[in-house]
Design a protein around this nucleic acid. Structure first.
Lengths: 189, 189
DNA sequence: GTCTATAACTTGATAGAC
DNA sequence: GTCTATCAAGTTATAGAC
């Protein structure tokens, strides 16, 4: 299956946005990387922000979808949290480029997209927090502030995409296990 | 003690950089906030980057200094890690503005300052990691990869500056205790 | 679809009057 | 020290030839 020029542009843009940041990356930079002049890009895409939007909303949708699946499963809050942590680690090691843009560059979205994005993120965080609260209520977790627990967990995984390289001697399952040891066991009662 | 215009500019810049990011914040934005025209700023400061440099290196020096003090104290690795976590939380809640810039905007430093900054950060992380390694060797911590533990700890604290507002009903010591519960106890053997 | 040329604008920083 | 005016360079995006 041959890649279309459009796909090629989107992939090059994701990498460029990761390396330089959205604001600093210029359309001329991007055009160079796909062997085009800047003006020719606009035969394939509508605008610079269209690219950012796709990256941000594709990832947001992905996380929300996984959350929906999980909510319908009949497993304990403790197991749900473990699954979510594993999922975050998997995404972060599997697609480091787009997750970097998703994590760091969403703030460059313009309205009304920014508000829609923050709404989706908020929904996800509320659902995650509810699972933690349920775990605390069931005494599967120690009694801590659920928001502190939520943010500590979420951000403690955020360094991986920045640091992880597939060639490293360290395996994915080793990362998973160590983080679950450092985090998970602390939270559990 | 009256604030000099220079101080006023530096403080307004830190807040502006936090809100918009260094690249997006313009000198015209900054001038507006201190009731000046953009060109007048240059009677007080040398360049936009001079402001960023001050914020980044002041903070880096602060963390390195605290580390030096700690290294000379005769306390266990476990206690050293707890003290470091407490210190990070204190800084993050005490000066949320400059810590945001320090955390997120250092990448906009130009050479040779960028390399010097990364060198300082690397020194700090190596010293922190050495303490963790010592704790593992002394069986005060569970056996985990020391780099994973380091990054998990460091980034798990990074959301605070972004989220913390002094008016919140939640106290500093409560944050400290909950994070130490979630993180600290997981790491300890 | 790709190009050249350019519109319309913003950026950091400077010159020189007052 | 602050201003107006301006420079030189950069930005996204479009018009129109081929």
């Amino acid at each position: 299956m041959k890649k279309t020029k459009k796909q090629e542009i989107f992939e090059a843009a994701a990498l460029l946005f990761k390396e330089k940041g959205y604001q600093v990356a210029s359309m001329r930079d991007l055009a160079n990387r796909v062997q085009l002049k800047a003006s020719s890009l606009y035969s394939h895409i509508g605008s610079k922000e269209e690219i950012l939007r796709k990256i941000c909303f594709d990832n947001a949708t992905c996380f929300i979808q996984r959350m929906e699946e999980l909510l319908h499963q009949d497993i304990s809050p403790k197991e749900k949290v473990r699954q979510l942590i594993r999922f975050h680690i998997q995404i972060a090691t599997q697609d480091t480029t787009s997750i970097t843009v998703f994590n760091d560059e969403w703030r460059n979205l313009s309205e009304p997209h920014l508000s829609r994005f923050l709404g989706m993120r908020n929904t996800y965080e509320k659902q995650f927090e509810a699972i933690i609260k349920e775990g605390i209520a069931q005494k599967q977790f120690k009694t801590v502030n659920s928001k502190i627990a939520l943010f500590t967990i979420l951000t403690s995984i955020r360094w991986i995409h920045y640091w992880y390289k597939p060639k490293r001697s360290i395996s994915l399952s080793m990362i998973e296990q160590d983080i679950l040891t450092i985090l998970g066991l602390g939270l559990e009662a």
